[in-house]
Design a protein around this nucleic acid. Structure first.
Lengths: 322, 322
DNA sequence: TTGTAGGCGTTATCAT
DNA sequence: ATGATAACGCCTACAA
């Protein structure tokens, strides 16, 4: 690997001059510039980013911590986030915390060690202190962690409202809300929104907690059997909805004729399955863009307007409701 | 951020001593060691990985380049790969090439700049020269790029054979193979295996190329309409299979009564949809493990036994075949 | 306009 | 057992 010294030698100039042409900084005569460029190409020189980062104390790397990668929603979100980050000429280091606090802490430490410039955190844990101690700019996604940490989430209350309204409107009378773990603020908000509409229509929905990613079919089945007259179901993720639909079929119920189902997230697969899934769509594009631009402002020490931003969701009606 | 100097000062020792305790290397008196440890904790010191990497010329980072992250198969694969890499005490930098050669090259360069220790490459491109010039250890996954680059793939021929055998055995007579882009060796191998069995039974399958990730339903529909008597379909990915099943329903055909369908990959969702998808399962766990251990050997300059390794696949029979 | 030299935070090779 | 010190590759005052 050629270094800046090699280039300097070959171009018969000093390293300082080479550095100047690399960074387009300071005065440098056009002729010598050409000489240097030539040497750079001849040697196939690429600056060592580690040395550069060491000096500048910034790495142009953004750490993205997610609880899962195979959670389809997150996979899709990450891809979009990466897009925006690349546009800012930064790079992404994806870290999978596996919803495990120890791993998350470890990553937080590792990211610091690499002089990461900023962190995008998607986390279900609530060890707020740890994040606050960090001197690295950080933006939370999908969860509002604390008032001191800027965050971007979907408007989950609105999501609950939209789902409830649709179900009511579609004539459902006996309703289940299969939600995520109800300790999560996200889930609580959705529940609040959902209940507000149900209350208004004097319907008392039954809520059951499930895992977002690996809902247990046995559990779903037993809930379903307990409430044989259910005709409307709201699920806190599309994956949960898939499982629910499967259980419903297993019990001989047709979707949407007997039971109507609404998911959450609008993952790409939602429209590839049969019947195509009606769902509350999270605006991944806007979530990603907002979070990245917030983080960039933080990194550049620009003032930010709001510490918590909620992105509108919308109902995408497909074939599991009527 | 405290540095090694700060720690040295506080512990009243030299930086050399601090370095020794950090790395558990060389002689250091137990008493002074304790002193140093104390200082480290008091200052909340974490070694700067950039400086360390700069000196050692290795970063303990593995770059993983994938063509997509939202391709569910890759997302699942990445997660498993990450597991194995973490076990080796390395870190992962995930790079999404978006199947674009320019982006892939860019990443290759960036990874070099960060003194990445090794690369795991999942690529559909064929610019072999670029990889060979790289002095970084590299292992290809899912595609056999060249004899000089170690690679790990599924036994795709076997996959084709398994699918064909099952379809024949299940009594299918009019058969379609919806495959991926047929320029890909992966796809060619599956086709070879598939055809070999078909030939033996004097069945002439119809092959159509589709995109792995975003198969066009219009295209699928028109193929299906051209061959109204089809009763067996082999798809080169589960995602393609989903689309096909959807089109089939649209044409009023039942799966598996009228048409039997086999997918490829065995993504987690394959068993969550209705009907549960019969598919050729790629052994992601073993692919990941093999690739990582190959890469580790390369990094440690150990000899490797085989340059190309194929991992067995197996047929998982579910509800789209009978 | 260009070059010299010191420093970024570590590690490792010497001495001591 | 411990401490100076020279790298690692780069950037930037400051000097020339």
């Amino acid at each position: 690997m050629a270094t800046i010294k090699d280039v300097a030698k070959r171009a018969h100039v000093s390293v300082a001059t080479v550095s100047r042409v690399i960074n387009n900084k300071g005065y440098v005569n056009e002729e010598t510039r050409l000489l240097v460029v030539e040497a750079i190409e001849a040697l196939n020189y690429v600056p060592n980013e580690l040395a550069r980062s060491l000096f500048k104390k910034q790495s142009r790397i953004i750490g993205v911590i997610v609880p899962h990668m195979t959670s389809y929603y997150f996979a899709e979100l990450i891809e979009i986030i990466e897009n925006f980050i690349i546009e800012e000429d930064y790079h992404v280091m994806v870290c999978n915390s596996r919803d495990d606090f120890a791993r998350e802490s470890k990553y937080l430490k590792v990211l610091q060690q690499y002089s990461i410039d900023g962190i995008l955190l998607v986390s279900n844990t609530h060890r707020i202190h740890d994040y606050q101690d960090l001197k690295v700019p950080i933006v939370a996604i999908d969860h509002h962690l604390s008032d001191h940490i800027p965050s971007v989430t979907s408007n989950n209350i609105q999501g609950g409202i939209l789902a409830a309204s649709k179900l009511i409107e579609a004539g459902c009378t006996e309703i289940i809300h299969f939600r995520g773990p109800s300790i999560l603020p996200t889930v609580q908000d959705r529940t609040t929104g959902f209940r507000s509409i149900m209350d208004k229509h004097r319907v008392a929905p039954n809520s059951f907690d499930l895992a977002f990613k690996d809902p247990d079919p046995q559990e779903i089945l037993s809930c379903l059997e307990k409430l044989p007259n259910v005709n409307g179901i709201f699920c806190d993720s599309d994956v949960i909805a898939l499982s629910v639909i499967q259980c419903l079929k297993q019990l001989g119920k047709n979707v949407p004729e007997d039971v109507q189902v609404i998911g959450f997230d609008n993952i790409e697969l939602a429209q590839m399955i049969t019947p195509r899934l009606t769902t509350i769509s999270q605006n991944k594009e806007q979530i990603a863009q907002t979070a990245v631009s917030l983080l960039m402002k933080l990194i550049q020490k620009q003032p930010i307007e709001a510490t918590h931003i909620e992105i509108d969701v919308n109902l995408v009606e497909r074939e599991t409701t009527q």
